[in-house]
Nucleic acid binder design. Structure first.
Length: 121
DNA sequence: AGCGTGACGAGTA
DNA sequence: ATACTCGCCACGC
């Protein structure tokens, strides 16, 4: 039989690694899908995105975003609430236009996963 | 087996 | 800043 058919409470190993990384991102910081993939040294941004889409609900999903800093479509207000609560650096809208949602200031909020990662490993 | 699609990223116009 | 292209990899039809 194949190990994959264990199913039920067993997630694919790759998925579990992605979730693990997402869990260790400190509040007020974010990682991009590509960063997570790079940190894992496996897969790519799209694979990480797929995992988050499927199992992201179990982890602080708002700390894993696109490299652009754009908030997750459909959860913008949700994410924004978390960011404001955690003090995540946001980039203000250059122009006060309605319907325009602030983006994460990647320059400051991006977390390279250095220091804590070593302790976690 | 081919083809389109997606919670992506980087480069170019 | 926006729009488009290409590279990437897994899934589903």
């Amino acid at each position: 039989m194949s190990e994959e058919s264990l199913s039920a409470d067993a997630l694919p190993e790759y998925a579990e690694r992605v979730l693990e990384v997402a869990e260790m991102i400190p509040p007020g910081r974010v990682m991009t899908y590509g960063d997570v993939a790079e940190w894992l040294e496996e897969g790519g941004p799209r694979q990480v995105g797929r995992v988050m889409a499927l199992y992201g609900g179990a982890v602080p999903w708002w700390r894993v975003i696109r490299a652009d800093g754009v908030l997750l479509p459909g959860h913008e207000l949700d994410a924004l609430g978390h960011y404001r609560a955690e003090g995540t650096p946001l980039r203000q809208a250059s122009r006060t236009s309605e319907g325009h949602v602030p983006r994460v200031d990647m320059k400051r909020a991006r977390w390279d996963g250095g220091e804590r990662a070593l302790d976690h490993i």
